[in-house]
Design a protein around this nucleic acid. Structure first.
Length: 424
RNA sequence: GUGAGAAUAGCUCAGGCGGUAGAGCGCAGGUCUGUGGAACCUGAAGUCGCGGGUUCGAAUCCCGUUUCUCACCCCA
């Protein structure tokens, strides 16, 4: 009888899921290495302020989605809802910016957000993310997008759409927000309840509104692209120019804004056009030019990106994207023991195989041989060996190749090299 | 946080307007005492998510609860 479920919004992963998770993380590590990124591991919880200050007091995440708890001495701690804040905290704490910049880091780990769960949206979920610290030029933006694009390509995705926008630097954004507010205020009660709130606290986020009334009003709203300062304008154009050189399809999404306060200038999202769901965003990121300074570090600019592991996995399954399992073509031997009387002999063989790094297993419960063979085939073993009276008496083994329907008989004591050649 | 639907065997699901719990796949055994993906036969497995209520009797009706799913919200 089931007494406990895993808590709401958490999940156990095993079997097939592990293959996907390994494939996604291995693919990420391989591609990040090619672009010279190094791994960083940070704690799963931080002082609450690390998140409230960076993500923003008025953001959804801080307002209602954080797992915050006091420790035994009453200090407020929070399970990380995203990766960037922790990485930046670590960089400033250890003065990692003292190295040759940009400092390129990646992380893979669990994040926590107290939300109403849905498919592809969990309370505990994994993110794969990167941060490039210490370059304010558009070329690093383009390289980050380039790498992300390659990451999804290597996973096997085809129909991806890249949304790119600039929300300007602190100065031009502030000016733009004033202009936007002037435009929106006269509409007053025509705006939905949420947007009235946003107008007050986080004006840019009105662009996330999905109500048709607000959407209509926003159609004619002033676009930030017309109000970027000269430097921000040049920056964005250069990013677009480099994306064209790289042949990466993108859309200038002028209504794209993002949920964290720390973003400046370039922001982007990767969307799958193959999936018709609210959870179609595979990942997102952007530039944050002030965050390191706000954490007590020097004034250096950075850019980062994060993608959801579970969401990526779900989408790969939905789209029937095959994964290359590492070692899929490696030979695997199933040794069928016919009787517990031969256990000593069997263990001698298993010991020899395993010392020689041959993947093998055996039946620990004695069963009908033909059923064992069927099972071994279904499990993807490449060879079987049966241990019975004949083998024990003569040291001869019959190696059956399950893929080619062939079999080889040899004396495994006298012909060890021949045996190994066959199985490696 | 709001609204809606769902939960039955390991898996996918049927059934049900109250009267002994079903199928397919999988699992186990056999036909078959040592060799191929098959076929056939047999079998095990469930307090019908959990708790309470109504009733002679609840998997079925009612209430609560947990989890999942969907739409909001937001995001990965």
């Amino acid at each position: 009888m089931l007494i406990y479920n895993s808590p709401r919004g958490t999940s156990d992963y095993y079997g097939e899921d592990i293959k996907y998770i390994d494939f996604i993380t291995d693919t990420a590590k391989n591609i990040f290495k090619i672009y010279n990124y190094k791994e960083i591991i940070t704690p799963h919880f931080e002082h609450t302020e690390v998140f409230t200050r960076s993500i923003g007091e008025n953001s959804e995440i801080v307002q209602k989605e954080m797992f915050t708890f006091p420790d035994k001495k009453g200090r407020s701690l929070t399970l990380r809802p995203e990766g960037t804040a922790s990485v930046v905290r670590a960089i400033v704490e250890h003065k990692l910016y003292g190295e040759n910049l940009p400092l390129k880091l990646f992380y893979i780990g669990d994040m926590f957000r107290y939300e109403r769960p849905q498919k592809g949206r969990m309370r505990e979920f994994r993110q794969v993310g990167i941060e490039a610290i210490g370059s304010d030029g558009p070329s690093i933006d383009a390289e980050v997008i380039w790498m992300i694009n390659n990451f999804f390509k290597n996973l096997g995705f085809k129909n991806l759409l890249l949304y790119v926008n600039s929300i300007g630097c602190r100065e031009c954004r502030e000016k733009y927000i004033e202009i936007l507010e002037d435009y929106l205020k006269p509409f007053g009660k025509d705006l939905c309840h949420d947007c009235v709130n946003r107008l007050d606290k986080n004006t840019l986020r009105v662009f996330d509104c999905k109500t048709s009334g607000c959407k209509k009003i926003l159609e004619n709203a002033p676009k930030i692209s017309n109000y970027l300062c000269r430097k921000c304008e040049i920056h964005l154009r250069k990013v677009f120019g480099l994306l064209k050189v790289l042949d990466i399809p993108y859309v200038h999404a002028e209504n794209l804004v993002r949920g964290f306060d720390y973003y400046t200038r370039t922001i982007f999202e990767v969307i799958s056009t193959d999936i018709d769901s609210a959870q179609n965003a595979l990942g997102g990121g952007g530039r944050y030019d002030n965050l390191i300074e706000e954490f007590g570090g020097p004034k250096i600019s950075s850019i980062g990106f994060a993608t959801g592991l579970e969401r990526t996995m779900l989408l790969m399954k939905d789209l029937d994207i095959d994964i290359e399992e590492p070692g899929k073509n490696q030979k695997k031997i199933y040794v069928i023991n016919m009787s517990a009387d031969f256990d000593e002999y069997l263990f001698g063989i298993l010991k020899f195989f395993r010392q020689n790094k041959i993947i093998c297993d055996t039946n620990f419960n004695i069963k009908n041989v033909s059923k064992e063979i069927k099972w071994a085939q279904a499990q993807g073993y490449s060879h079987i060996v049966v241990i019975g009276e004949n083998e024990v008496d003569t040291n001869k083994l019959i190696i059956k190749d399950l893929d080619n329907y062939t079999q080889t008989e040899l004396n495994w004591i006298n012909e060890k090299s021949r045996l190994l050649k066959l199985l490696r």
